[in-house]
Computed example of a mutant assay.
Amino acid sequence: MGRFETAEKIGLRDKISKKIIAVYPLKATGSDTEIEKLVRDWYYKQSCKAEDELLTAFVDVLTEQEIKSRQ
């Protein structure tokens, strides 16, 4: 079982600041590699600046506290 398969919520996090860039709104299924591609592709479709942000981002499991602080 992969790291993302059991996660409640996942999203993109900045590699340097560790701040959340985006929370993936759907339940992701598949292997870790498939989920990473799914989340990155979803974010790429969200805005024109996404391409630059994706260069310094990684897919990560988000905590309940992080999700609540973004609402």
Rank of each mutant, 00 (worst) to 15 (best):
K15E: 04
V59C: 01
A57N: 03
K9L: 10
Q65S: 14
K37H: 08
I67E: 11
A28D: 06
K15L: 11
V59W: 03
D41S: 02
S17R: 08
S31Q: 09
R70Y: 12
F4P: 00
W42F: 10
E53W: 06
K27G: 07
E8F: 10
P25T: 04
K68S: 15
E51P: 04
V39E: 03
L55S: 10
T33Y: 12
M1G: 11
L26I: 11
E5D: 12
E64L: 15
C48P: 14
L54E: 03
D32S: 07
G11C: 05
T6F: 11
P25Q: 04
R70V: 08
D32A: 08
R3N: 01
V23W: 01
A22V: 05
Q46D: 03
W42D: 06
K9Y: 12
A57L: 02
I16V: 14
T29Y: 12
S47N: 09
A50L: 07
D41F: 01
Y24G: 01
D52Y: 12
G11T: 02
G2A: 10
R70W: 12
I67C: 15
A28S: 14
L62M: 07
A57P: 07
K18G: 05
E66D: 13
R40M: 07
R40H: 00
M1I: 10
A57R: 00
Y43H: 04
L55R: 11
E36Q: 10
S31G: 11
V59E: 06
D60R: 09
K18C: 12
E34A: 11
Q46E: 07
Q65L: 13
